[in-house]
Computed example of a mutant assay.
Amino acid sequence: MAISDIGPDIGDTAPDFSLPRDGGGTLSLLALRGKPVVLFFYPKDDTSGCTQEAIEFSGLKGDFDKMGVTLVGMSPDSVKKHDKFKAKHELSVDLAADEEKTVLQTYGVWVQKSMYGRKYMGVERTTFLIGPDGRIVHVWRKVKVPGHAAEVLQTVKSLWH
């Protein structure tokens, strides 16, 4: 399968990235090869939906850890904002900062959105499940937050345990 205009799809090799991460340092997808990765894209730190999503993933992190799965959240926010967001909500997931929006564009999640008739560019909430071999196993597009992290966990369990 080819990477479509909406980004990579099931069966594609997940595009690698190396980005600044919360707490300093960089986060690279290639460095995580060999174990499954849940990569969730979200619009903005400290907004209600994004906070709920990050809290739900953090709450299930122990279950993901038991299965050897790494959780990575990504938004266009800065590392400084990520650090504040993590501290304020006691988040345990890794957060990557894509301020240039290059990875967001590569994954097809930087899209035109519309609110109250106004069009603007933003992140479409999307989650990719990447297998240990670096291939995309599952994609959730236009994610609705409530129960999403639990649904991803169930999918991981059905695939690898």
Rank of each mutant, 00 (worst) to 15 (best):
G62R: 09
V139F: 13
F85H: 04
Q52W: 11
T155S: 09
D12E: 12
G49S: 14
R125P: 05
F40S: 08
E124M: 11
F57Q: 09
A96C: 07
G7I: 02
D45A: 09
G34C: 03
K44C: 04
K81L: 03
M67P: 00
S18N: 12
R21T: 06
G34R: 11
Y120T: 04
G131V: 02
R125V: 06
D45N: 02
L30S: 15
K113L: 07
L129D: 12
A97R: 07
K84H: 12
P132D: 15
E99P: 00
G11N: 05
H89I: 01
S4N: 14
P132W: 13
D16Q: 04
L95E: 13
F57R: 01
T51P: 02
V79L: 09
K142S: 12
G34A: 01
E90P: 00
V103K: 07
I10R: 05
Q112L: 02
P8T: 02
L153S: 07
F85D: 10
G134T: 05
R135E: 14
D94S: 08
W160I: 13
V109T: 08
I130V: 10
T155E: 15
T127L: 01
Q112P: 00
T127G: 06
W140S: 02
R135S: 11
V93Y: 14
P8S: 05
